[in-house]
């Protein structure tokens, strides 16, 4: 069956298919390349990169929950220079479409990473993590306040002409308000959702289980939350959305497309099944076709209220 899986996004960003490895679950590229042809994925969003190295949180850093995973990695990374020197050449050589996930403690730090990536061969887009619930300073506040989200997006926008997506936190009253702020600030796309803040208790030691105290919940447990955010945001902005949260199958991908996502990211399930993203890509044509679609774009937003539904060009469905 011939099925067009291409996704066209702003600023000329084109993905061969809509399945992207989610930041933080796929390392900096080399780690999974033994199990996955990373060039065959829609794109790879690398672990968050800051100007200088970040140490991250004390262990333990992961805890299992029913249908979910709680993590408090704390954005450990070796800094942008090590990323550019050690990992980017590998990603380039493998033909990966690279999205650099950027983090900072201040507006200026975000802008520094953005301008460092500008013109670096092999970087296809930036994803601004304003939403990580792990770090007490920095990330948290930017994603929680429309004004600060605007500021950081604006600074990144001015530092680069790469396609920029801003990643939303679900841990706010109205993700749609934040989405509108970053759209106004010049974001080309939105990715959603980051992890849902949570806590686990280590009964034996009578204390929070994770070294970082709270953690971010991911995996199938958060899929309904993620779908609801995508669905709301899709009705509030006109820029494309990259949806994620608990995706484990091609059927899940179709749900996110219908809720308004133009592409998706896949994270936690990769820990169980390193090859699952490739399997999803292989099975997507059948799932789309069973749903009555002839391509990815035809499905986008088709579960939204009629007024928000994207116009479908004749024959696209």
């Amino acid at each position: 069956m011939v099925m067009d899986l291409h996704v066209s996004l702003p600023r000329g960003l084109t993905l061969a298919n809509p399945v992207i490895a989610a930041s933080g679950t796929f390392g900096f590229g080399p780690e999974y390349s033994r199990y996955v042809d990373i060039g065959s994925l829609g794109a790879v969003s690398v672990k968050g990169v800051s100007p200088e190295p970040w140490l991250g949180n004390p262990p333990p850093r992961v805890w299992e929950t029913p249908m979910g995973l709680l993590n408090s990695i704390g954005l450990q990374n070796p800094g942008m220079e090590v990323f550019v020197r050690d990992d980017l050449p590998f990603l380039r050589e493998k033909g990966a479409t690279v999205i650099v996930n950027i983090i900072g403690h201040t507006v200026d730090e975000y802008a520094r990473v953005a301008s460092r990536m500008q013109g670096e061969a092999g970087v296809a887009a930036l994803e601004v993590n304003i939403s990580c619930p792990n770090i007490k300073e920095g990330g948290m506040s930017f994603g929680h306040d429309p004004e600060q989200a605007y500021q950081v997006t604006r600074a990144v926008r001015q530092a680069t002409d790469l396609p920029v997506m801003v990643k939303l936190s679900p841990n706010v009253t109205s993700p749609a308000l934040i989405a509108q702020a970053v759209e106004q600030a010049g974001a080309d796309m939105i990715s959603a959702i980051n992890t849902v803040v949570g806590l686990a208790i280590d009964v034996e030691h009578r204390r929070p289980a994770l070294g970082g105290t709270t953690g971010g919940l991911s995996g199938p447990a958060i899929k309904p939350i993620a779908l609801r955010v995508v669905y709301d945001v899709a009705q509030s902005v006109s820029i494309p959305i990259i949806g994620m949260g608990g995706i484990a199958s091609a059927a899940d991908v179709l749900e996110f497309l219908l809720a308004g996502a133009s592409a998706v990211m896949v994270g936690t399930v990769t820990f169980q099944h390193p090859g699952r993203m490739q399997q999803i890509i292989a099975e997507l044509p059948q799932v789309l076709s069973r749903g009555g679609f002839r391509g990815v774009s035809g499905a986008v937003g088709q579960a939204l209220p009629a007024a928000s539904r994207p116009q479908t060009r004749g024959g696209d469905l």
Binding site: T25, Y32, R61, L69, F271
Partner: peptide, 16 residues
């Protein structure tokens, strides 16, 4: 140590 990926990608399993 508690692990996620087991192959070096997630940085869950660290020790000081």
């Amino acid at each position: 140590q508690r692990m996620g990926c087991g192959i070096g990608a997630c940085l869950a399993c660290v020790v000081p």
